[in-house]
Write a protein that binds this DNA or RNA. Structure first.
Length: 830
RNA sequence: GCGAGAGUGGCGGAAUUGGUAGACGCGCUGGUCUUAGGAACCAGUAUCUAUGAUGUGUGGGUUCGAGUCCCUCCUCUCGCACCA
């Protein structure tokens, strides 16, 4: 007897995990090399912002990714599983200011600490490919891509009204404005006119929308969100000439079939023609006061609630080009200046907003589309009728059906030259200029005589100046650093200034997944051979909060890089898994709520494997995970139970070994083993439901423990037992790699778990030979019987009709109908 | 308001094509061993007026049979939100 037999003791996870991590690192077993003879698999988790320390959301995200990576390796794939740092961004500047240090130092210190944490979790990354986006070896290539995109007219500069956050002192993209507030600091966002750089993402609007169809491996929810964000609508663009003026008002409508029902025109308070419409008229002052009023109201407005419809007559009229009718022009508070043309033809009979407005200001309501089986009376209507139907009061289009009328009306407008078919998108071009220090400098030069020019490629990278003392002033934007922005014009050689804005950090994360295929490429942003082999990412994993921003920008970048000749793919991520949040006490873990659990504490207390196991076991990955301290305890208990079994298992021949025939215990264990392999493989392959996979392994272990119980008369043979242990360890390896490796070594099995093939199963062996058949009377379960698996329908029926409980409930009535489902049940209807 | 998803024990969650509801784990109850245990092991654990009946948010429907399919309504979560 060994000492472990007498004193089972506890599994020393600290020593074991450290030892295996060291072994793996030394042997570089996670290093990925291109090998065109092998099938590749690229699994990627959204890289973290180096905020200081990892949180439970990271643990969950990376545990899921690591199981996928290790599973695919066992399945024989050449797996790429990299990790890096999304390292530019505002928090570094804030922290630097607070701690009187440099953003670079703060960032790199955090990276060092977080890398250690990730290594402690035993995540199987190829650390040779690690990259940080704040490193000039990364952003220099981003600058090059920026210039190439500029040359392809995918980048341009313009002055616009931008979203300005006073707290962060920077511009925000539309996507970064959440309910009128900054996504970062929650402060109110104000409009401000500024000159800035834009990516022409709208050029790809149609393709970005159309290709969503092909992304079958994406959650529908994410595809829908992107589709709504792109917001395509088709309809008629049309001009209404202004009475007594050379000018006309352009409108866009998705319902050209209602155009004869226009009874007034409503324009936004910011509409460019307003000045001309009202200047000099006697109501000018009243209108100006009104405009001021509603814009002030909008500032105060609670975004949640819809405002009451309000407007004012401008005193001017325009002409409906179809009917020739004279139409009053109103300014209305519900018309958005930013969308469409800032003017809307108002059809109160068929649009709810126009309807409310018309009722309030006693404007006429004229129904022109009558849905089948209805009768619209403008006097008594209580709401607008938006359904399609047959046209009336529409001149030569009378009697046409809505969709046919739309086409005919558009064609008519085109023929007569006052309108045309138009497709619009809600998607705006992506403004990327940020007035911040800690970001990638935009590589452009402003010359008074030559205009705007890109930095010559051989001068890249344009590095961030780091040469100052660390102080609060260090965070000054580049515009306050003459030594940075003074330069010479590459065209004429005279004095010029550099662009002092830096890029939105979402630019870095829009192509990092491609750079991971060739992080050391020294003469180009991407190595064509490497990226062709590894891309696209086969499985991308991250939080649903990136459903729009990051994923849309990345899709745009891939299409742009394709058109620049770098890539041959259309989409970056073939499959997407959006994991749920980690919550505690019903709320997302956050510092402000004070319900955070620090992964460091858990790893110290339970070890990486237990933490991984629990986060995989507690919920399927796409669902929110409720943190539960006792659940972690349970995961730890399971591993300790397996540990005690293995250290206490002698491997000595059992009575069953002496018999030539397999015992019932052998068959039970072997059958369960095959069933488990089948279930675990299925659960991982279909939807990464590790929770049910783990429960299946637990069941196999429970069976193993029961057939080796010395109290029982019959035990399984040592070969069957050894097979079962091996299977358990390989199936568990992707989830608890240190533990599995250690148990494998204790069992003195040859080689190591990661060198095994994923076990296969045999349907025949997995099949049960005794089945429980349910006996129902009138659909209610009345009895259960055990039968041989191959018992046919007739025999089952006969058994059922003999069953005592069944007979009692039939109560000697004549069966009307007997339904027999083989292997499942018999239902007798009386 | 629009769009998407979800409602199952005390809790997290299971349930191929409609066919044993509650796998697995937590918690709880009782027991064994122990100086003790918050360790380990064993047994039990949906509810009730309990030979039976009722149970998957509500109410209806289809079916021999519904957590699963259809319709109604309620609640919650997420996203978008005066988009013409």
């Amino acid at each position: 007897m060994t000492t472990t037999d007498q004193l089972p003791g506890k599994y020393d996870f600290k020593a074991v995990e450290a030892r295996w991590q060291q072994t793996w690192e030394q042997e570089e077993i996670n290093k990925a090399d291109m090998d065109s003879r092998r099938e590749k698999y690229y699994v990627l988790e959204m890289f973290p912002y180096p905020s200081g320390r990892i949180h439970m959301g990271h643990v969950r995200n990376y545990s899921i990714g690591d199981v996928v990576a290790r599973y695919k390796r066992l399945r024989g794939f050449n797996v790429l599983h990299p990790m890096g740092w999304d390292a530019f961004g505002l928090p570094a500047e804030n922290a630097a200011q607070k701690n009187n240090t440099h953003p670079a130092k703060w960032t790199y210190d955090n990276i060092d600490y977080m890398r250690t944490q990730l290594k402690q979790l035993g995540l199987s990354y190829d650390w040779n490919r690690e990259l940080a986006t704040c490193d000039d070896s990364y952003y220099r290539w981003e600058q090059k891509l920026f210039i190439e995109m500029y040359q392809k007219d995918l980048v341009y500069q313009r002055t616009t009204t931008v979203n300005w956050c006073e707290t962060c002192q920077t511009v925000l993209a539309n996507e970064q404005v959440i309910e009128g507030a900054c996504w970062r600091c929650d402060d109110f966002v104000r409009p401000r006119k500024m000159n800035g750089w834009f990516f022409r993402i709208t050029r790809y609007a149609e393709e970005l929308l159309a290709d969503l169809q092909a992304l079958g491996g994406w959650p529908e929810k994410v595809a829908t969100m992107q589709s709504n964000w792109i917001g395509k609508s088709t309809g008629l663009s049309c001009d209404f000439s202004i009475e007594g003026s050379e000018r006309s008002i352009s409108i866009f409508t998705t319902r050209p079939d209602t155009i004869f029902g226009v009874t007034f025109m409503s324009v936004a308070a910011e509409h460019p023609l307003i000045d001309e419409l009202i200047s000099g008229s006697e109501i000018e002052q009243a209108v100006r006061t009104f405009i001021k009023e509603i814009s002030e109201e909008r500032m105060r407005q609670n975004i949640e609630e819809e405002q009451e419809k309000k407007g004012i007559f401008t005193g001017r009229y325009c002409i409906n080009p179809f009917s020739g009718q004279r139409i009053p022009v109103y300014i209305a508070n519900f018309v958005l200046a930013e969308y469409g043309t800032g003017a809307v033809m108002a059809v109160p009979a068929h649009d709810q907003r126009d309807f409310e407005f018309a009722r309030k200001y006693k404007l006429p309501i004229l129904p022109v589309v009558i849905p089948e089986g209805t009768d619209l009376n403008p006097e008594t209507m209580e709401e607008a009728s938006t359904a399609y139907g047959l046209l009336v009061n529409s001149g030569r289009f009378d009697g046409m059906e809505s969709s046919a009328a739309q086409a005919a009306i558009i064609a008519d407008a085109e023929q007569n030259g006052f309108g045309s078919a138009l497709t619009t998108y809600r998607l705006r071009d992506w403004g990327i200029s940020r007035q911040r220090y800690w970001g990638a400098p935009i590589p452009m030069i402003h010359c008074d005589s030559c205009g705007v020019l890109p930095v010559p490629l051989d001068e890249l990278p344009i590095k961030l100046p780091e040469d100052r003392e660390s102080s609060a002033g260090e965070c000054a934007p580049l515009s306050r650093r003459p030594e940075f922005f003074h330069t010479t014009c590459p065209a004429c050689g005279s004095g010029a200034t550099r662009e002092t804005d830096t890029m939105d950090t979402f630019v870095e994360s829009s192509w990092y997944f491609a750079r991971f295929t060739c992080p050391d490429a020294a003469d180009a942003p991407l190595d064509r051979e490497q990226s062709r082999y590894w891309l696209p990412v086969d499985q991308y994993i991250g939080g649903v909060e990136h459903a729009i921003l990051h994923l849309l920008y990345s899709r745009f970048f891939v299409k742009a890089l394709r058109d620049l000749g770098y890539l041959e793919i259309d989409e970056p991520f073939a499959n997407l898994l959006t994991q749920g949040m980690v919550i505690k006490d019903g709320a997302k873990m956050s510092k402000s709520k004070g319900n955070v659990v620090d992964p460091d504490d858990l790893i110290n207390h339970y070890g990486a494997d237990t933490v991984r196991l629990f986060s995989l076991f507690a919920a399927p990955p796409e669902r929110d995970l409720e943190w539960n301290a006792q659940g972690v305890e349970g995961a730890s208990r399971f591993l300790n139970r397996v540990y005690r079994f293995i250290t206490g298992y002698s491997g000595a021949p059992t009575a069953a070994d002496l018999s030539a025939e397999a015992s019932d215990a052998d068959r039970t264990l072997d059958r369960k083993r095959h069933q488990t392999i089948k279930k675990v493989t299925h659960d991982i392959e279909t939807n990464f439901h590790f929770n049910t996979a783990i429960s299946a392994v637990m069941e196999l272990f429970n069976t193993l423990a029961s057939v080796t119980d010395p109290e029982k008369e019959e035990t399984a043979g040592s070969e069957t037992i050894s097979q079962a242990i091996k299977t358990i360890l390989v199936l568990l390896f992707p989830m608890v790699p240190h533990f599995s490796s250690e148990m494998w070594a204790i069992m003195k099995f040859p080689s190591r778990p990661e060198e095994q093939e994923w076990p296969s199963f045999d349907e025949e062996t997995a099949r049960e030979d005794l089945l429980t058949i349910v006996l129902q009377v009138n659909g209610k379960v009345r009895s259960r019987i055990q039968v041989e698996a191959d018992t046919d329908e007739k025999a089952l029926e006969a058994c059922a009709l003999k069953d005592e409980n069944v007979l009692r409930f039939i109560n000697s009535k004549e069966p009307k109908k007997i339904i027999v489902i083989k292997k499942k049940l018999v239902n007798i209807v009386v």
